[in-house]
Design a protein around this nucleic acid. Structure first.
Lengths: 277, 277
DNA sequence: CCACCCTTTTGACATGGGTCAAACTCTGCG
DNA sequence: CGCAGAGTTTGACCCATGTCAAAAGGGTGG
């Protein structure tokens, strides 16, 4: 994890410097999400979007080779975060979007009295921070749920570059649009589903996203606590725990703490959308 | 309403023709939201964004005069809808965004079993349809809650034009970003607020949006039913009705069916965010 | 490797909001 | 102008989920 590390930031404008004070920049970060042990992986070439194993999922998706090369200009820096660390907080000045390179994040909104609503979980290849563009400051908190790495996408560069690369423009608009559509789904879940339907929908969604990343969609480890799942689903942690146990009793899933197995995805799907009883 | 009406569409590409079959295009639509009775208002000049009384709120917001002139190219057509009519339905091909010119809309997602979740209410100057960009089809239903008029913004033109007009690009990104942030707010509401808090937040939000449009924020007429409010807030209509009555008893508002008066906005604000009890 | 604390599970009980029902009031249409 | 139907209000009751509590399990850091 220490190999190949060498800060290259020397000059930059004041605002940026302030807002990304603890960014770590590497000449040649490891080519993989996992810390590189062999030095063979530590090459300049392995840095870019073109060689990133996420390029099918992330921003460069749908761009051709030459375009991807240009998109690499976007990635201003990488930043590592330890579990529990904040990537940004509500109120911080907005300068960049973040693509998850490895790890897992939550974003949340707070109410004055301390109630927290988790608005999303982000995994590899997903883009965080788009709610900050309008107000020019971040409007929620982003926290790493495990040791993670993000690509810092300078928004000002994205604006300029997407004017010259129509397919990047298109891709970016689609990413924002999908975020809107995703949230519609969450609103449906929060507004019209019962506790067990919500959890079923949540597990199916996670499963599908893991599968899209070539992880197993049948067996995975939850990175968040029952309380965080509850916050996302508008439920209390006890209710989440009971629903897990019920699904297990019914043979739909296997749960042991954070380890979940999807035994009957079709059964979970049937669970959803069968009326308020 | 019949004065000045004169279809001008003669040639257009096939796809579009199909998707906006029932669009009504006017050489010179009325300059006001309300049907024009005098013919003096029916002039070509009153058509454009520059002369629209919504340009402070709508897409052209923040653009200078010359830019606004160019933005007018975006508005492909206007379309009138009667109360209850659909602007688009889930599954329809996506070609355009819609700016509300007058009237009031709801958008909703459906579950197979018929449960409906209203995801937003849109009023003058607000943009609908952005969730369709990613999937290239609309993913929810948009229905007029009163006789309404929308400006049809061809998305393909918006893409091209925003590459040449940085301030339009910026403005569009902000509009999308704000939609994301708005939905975060709704998620907070649905996930962590109690019935009365939800209604208070809803009324304050409406009040503020009416005020921004130079309508009274203290006295307004709801365009949606209790059931629709309930659907949006994740509550049953009876619960909404009871909360209205309670607020009235407490002197926070006055309600008589759809007519609402905000008597104590500060009191409503205090209502929100005081814990689960 | 151990100890502590955080997380999870489960039970018993409380309650906010859902459900069902009935009466009342608008609104729009003939 | 009046009728019908849709929308609203209110009451009584009930259930899903929240609340409180206690015990057990596991992972994390020293």
């Amino acid at each position: 994890m220490v190999h190949g590390r060498q800060p290259i930031i020397t000059v930059m404008d004041r605002d940026l410097k302030a807002s990304i004070a603890e960014v770590q920049v590497f000449v040649a970060p490891p080519g993989r999400a996992v810390p590189a042990r062999g030095s063979s992986e530590v090459t300049r070439v392995s840095t870019g979007c073109a060689n990133c194993n996420l390029h099918e999922i992330c921003i460069p998706c749908g761009l051709n080779g030459r375009e991807v090369d240009q998109v690499e200009e976007l990635i201003y820096a990488r930043r590592r975060l330890k579990r529990g660390e904040s990537l940004y907080r509500a109120g911080d000045a907005f300068n960049s979007l973040y693509a998850v390179r490895s790890g897992f994040f939550k974003t949340s909104q707070m109410l004055e009295d301390g109630r927290e609503q988790i608005t999303a979980f982000y995994m590899a290849g997903e883009i965080m921070g788009m709610d900050g563009i309008g107000p020019e400051r971040h409007s929620c908190n982003a926290v790493a749920l495990e040791d993670s790495q993000v690509c810092v996408i300078l928004y000002s560069r994205l604006e300029v570059l997407s004017r010259h690369l129509p397919s990047l423009q298109q891709q970016f608009h689609k990413v924002m649009s999908r975020e809107i559509a995703r949230e519609h789904g969450v609103m449906l879940l929060l507004g019209s589903m019962r506790a067990e339907e919500r959890l079923a929908a949540f597990l199916l969604n996670l499963s599908q996203r893991f599968a899209a990343r070539r992880y197993s969609g049948h067996e995975f480890v939850l990175r968040m606590t029952r309380e965080e799942i509850g916050s996302y689903l508008g439920l209390k942690l006890e209710t989440v725990s009971r629903a897990f146990s019920k699904f297990q009793d019914e043979g739909l899933i296997s749960v042991r703490h954070k380890r979940v197995g999807i035994l009957d995805a079709a059964g979970l799907k049937r669970m959803i959308g069968r009326g308020l009883h």
